[in-house]
Design a protein around this nucleic acid. Sequence first.
DNA 1: CTGTTAGCGCTTTCAA
DNA 2: TTGAAAGCGCTAACAG
Lengths: 335, 335
Amino acid sequence: MTIKDIARECGCGLGTVSRVLNNHPDVSDQMRERVLAVVHKYGFVSNQSAKLLRSQDNKTIAILMKGTSSILLNSLVERIQKRMERLPYTTNVVVLDEYDNEAKQAYQVCQRHRPLGLIFAGGNPDFYKEDFANIRTPCVIITNQANDVQSSSLSSVSTDDIAAAQCMAEHLVANGHRNIGIIGGDLASSELSQRRYKGFLSVLQKHGIPFDPERQYAVSKYSLGDGANAAQQLVYANPDMSAIFTMSDVMAIGAIRRLTDLGRSVPGDISVTGFDGLDIANFLCPRLTTIRQLLDELAERGLDALLDNIERGKPCSHQLVPFEFVAGESVCKRS
Amino acid sequence: MTIKDIARECGCGLGTVSRVLNNHPDVSDQMRERVLAVVHKYGFVSNQSAKLLRSQDNKTIAILMKGTSSILLNSLVERIQKRMERLPYTTNVVVLDEYDNEAKQAYQVCQRHRPLGLIFAGGNPDFYKEDFANIRTPCVIITNQANDVQSSSLSSVSTDDIAAAQCMAEHLVANGHRNIGIIGGDLASSELSQRRYKGFLSVLQKHGIPFDPERQYAVSKYSLGDGANAAQQLVYANPDMSAIFTMSDVMAIGAIRRLTDLGRSVPGDISVTGFDGLDIANFLCPRLTTIRQLLDELAERGLDALLDNIERGKPCSHQLVPFEFVAGESVCKRS
DNA sequence: CTGTTAGCGCTTTCAA
DNA sequence: TTGAAAGCGCTAACAG
């Protein structure tokens, strides 16, 4: 079933059917109704490939997601899509291979689908800074910064990681904690982790609290199992620690579980804080004390930045979005 | 950049470039290398729309996912995709509107993208049985049964819900529980919930244990908040209850949190069981006693059924996959 | 307002 | 083994 079939049945030309399907004004009401009736009768939907091939004017925005397993990114993508529904664009979620060069993959997506714009949900631009130069399609990275990536087509919108980490650090210090462990990403490769680290340490420094990375920092992937292992490593290296700052809720959940297995109660013996503010954080026992990333705000600002760039040619921007401190039950005053 | 450009630069015809790109054998090694060199030089990727438009032989399989928020379905889709990588097919994840007719949406996807096959990750065929008749593209529903849907193109692969619910019921009964509440989906609309309900009740009946739906069954969506509310409702309606069987881990997590808020300890005062076997279930405090759905097995069998149908014209099948009982810490003997 | 027509970039005959 | 040419289904420009 093609528009040719529809045209034949309506006794009109292809062009007319196309015009009706695309809501062009220059069609008589009578004709429009006749075509619509037939379209409806067969539940006709036009072939996307042909449409895209012909009209370079694509109206598609690709959402690139690294892996599918992150709860945070899933929520983010969901919100972006919801917001997009009201706009005259089609979204196209592409799942990228977790361990591949995302700039290269993005370039391929551009070639393959010719989207009007790209949204990176998560992802880490640090490794592939140079490769972004090849991409001329407007892009926005959401939940990570890209200030120092050389590209005139790349915007970024992210939570103010430094301030958020500082906020959490102040909270722990205010509760009397002096010997605090950190579970975070690999500082050598992730600027995101670096920012949270830097923010946290700045507060310790301000209060004259020493920090020995060797004993107090454990590297972990953003996963439950890794968070658990990192917690164990910290406990062994630094038994007197009274609190752990983790860089994601998922790490925190893993850490709490392992601490419990090791006979340390949370928060009784050790306080643990998360980062992200996942829904589930508020349903755990104990409820997680965490930083909520404002996903709606991130989605909205990210989209706005992208569309400003696409529709109005505004230059790319790099924005920080505020966060929310969530007081849970996983921190208590040091006894 | 199109294959025309590549052809010009190579000094050959379009056909040759196309043949190289598609690994056709009838190209001289010399020519092949020359083309490949140029393709590589520009990082050329051919335009998907044109390709699909021309070669009706699509090699695309669409994965239809209802909503994006279910952890279980995300894991499932991830596994399907991983398995697909080795096969000569391209996947295309389409997120369906949560509250719309999925058969209609599937039909539109077929028209729009002309996939070779469809995989429903989750979803509920019950409502739209008749509408599936319009779909001639081979389909498989994974994690739900579709035995009674009238369609010669629809397979299904699901966990043996009845046996799983029976298994959990036996476990609770063996631990001395007699007054057990159930948190599950709407029995009027979800055959999945019905099966789990039926399985569970059959065991109670076998042991001569009474069950009053009015006081012991609470309807809930598959969400944290709803699980929590349902738990509260049960506690009020049936204060002596010593255990709750929930139909998903997410409901169980919500329930445990609310029970804790109401001053009931889990499992001390009330035992709670989950269903699904999410990774996170094993990191909670207490670890969840649950039924693990074997996602790899589901993905594999679902794909096999679909490909058998597509490639070898085998008739559609409806299969049940076994499950795994996971002994956690959220159930204890009734005191 | 409407029908006709020229491609969009690609694959796949068909001839050479 | 290769080049030329015919469309896939659609949109948009043009002519009526």
